[in-house]
């Protein structure tokens, strides 16, 4: 990317709109038009909306309230609950995803028979819809006839069937488990790329120096995987803090407010309380957090390229 910068830097101002620019505009116009109308415009419109008090129940009264939708958030107990739930959910999920993906990628980096079959199987959770994933886990966790109860019962770990999703302490973790199951494949693929990019001479040199398997892992593999890890952590954090589908189908924010995460809170505020102004304000907060994360994301990537 640096060569592009120096190239365009050399061009004088007079030349800035030459032949190249004109043909580029021809090719870029459609994509710019699309992104302007479905990404830039909505995000700006959303900022505008967040300064109004818009209740669909009172469509003719939409006063301009400046930052009140934002300042109200500081005193909104439920909003902060949802932020806490989102943080817990994201941390648990991302750490679990990174650790499982590390183990799986180390396994798939070995040469053994059946490796290709295994990596194809691994794509399955990535490919299926989140709604189907949610339905599947809802059925597994089912208190009456679910597989989790059945398995634990048959193995003798539990005496009676447990209402898993009804337990406030476990709900968030159970949903995180469903999320992790679906996200591990992508994280594994990303880590595998970094693993494959480690030069083999490094390992050979270490072996000559008498480093054990464990020493080679700690001193070569782990440090070389740092960029891959950063990528996985940031990307999965972005996915986790905005996640909605599982919460909608598995618990609807319950029991109590045990799984009342930010995205669910935004949904309830907007489409159940029909308060579009404050809904827009909250989703703007979420968007800003994501932008901050993505800045890190792009910087990490930029260093790699």
């Amino acid at each position: 990317m640096s060569d592009i910068a120096t190239y365009s830097g050399r061009r004088s101002l007079r030349n800035r709109f030459g032949y190249e620019e004109r043909s580029a505009i021809f090719f870029l116009a459609p994509v710019m038009a699309v992104l302007m109308s479905v990404a830039v415009f909505p995000i700006l419109y959303s900022l505008y909306l967040s300064f109004f008090q818009i209740k669909l129940t009172r469509p003719n009264r939409t006063p301009f309230v400046w930052f009140q939708n934002y300042t109200d958030l500081f005193t909104n107990e439920l909003f902060w609950t949802s932020v806490r739930r989102t943080v817990v959910f994201s941390i648990v999920s991302v750490v679990a995803i990174a650790m499982i993906a590390l183990l799986v990628s180390l396994l798939l980096n070995q040469n053994f028979r059946g490796r290709r079959v295994l990596s194809t199987i691994l794509l399955v959770p990535w490919a299926i819809p989140y709604v189907a994933n949610a339905l599947m886990w809802k059925w597994i966790y089912d208190s009456g006839y679910g597989a989790l109860n059945g398995l634990l019962y048959q193995l003798g770990f539990i005496e009676d069937y447990v209402i898993w999703l009804g337990d406030q302490d476990k709900t968030l973790l159970l949903i995180a488990n469903a999320f992790v199951w679906k996200e591990v494949p992508l994280a594994t693929i990303l880590l595998l790329v970094t693993l494959k990019s480690i030069p083999a001479d490094l390992y050979q040199a270490a072996r000559v120096d008498g480093a054990s398997v464990w020493q080679r892992f700690v001193h070569i593999t782990l440090p070389s995987m740092k960029p891959g890890f950063m990528l996985v952590m940031i990307y999965e954090t972005m996915m986790a803090i905005r996640h909605f589908d599982l919460f909608f189908i598995l618990t609807e924010g319950g029991p109590g407010h045990a799984s009342h995460v930010l995205s669910w809170h935004i949904y309830v505020e907007t489409f159940r309380n029909l308060s579009f102004g404050s809904g827009a304000a909250m989703s703007y907060v979420l968007a800003l957090v994501t932008f901050a994360l993505s800045y890190l994301f792009i910087r990490t990537l930029g260093r790699k390229v």
Binding site: I43, S46, I266, T270, A287, L293
Partner: peptide, 10 residues
């Protein structure tokens, strides 16, 4: 990287 939920209201 714009989250889909931020686009829903507009």
């Amino acid at each position: 990287v714009i989250p889909d939920i931020a686009l829903v209201v507009p």
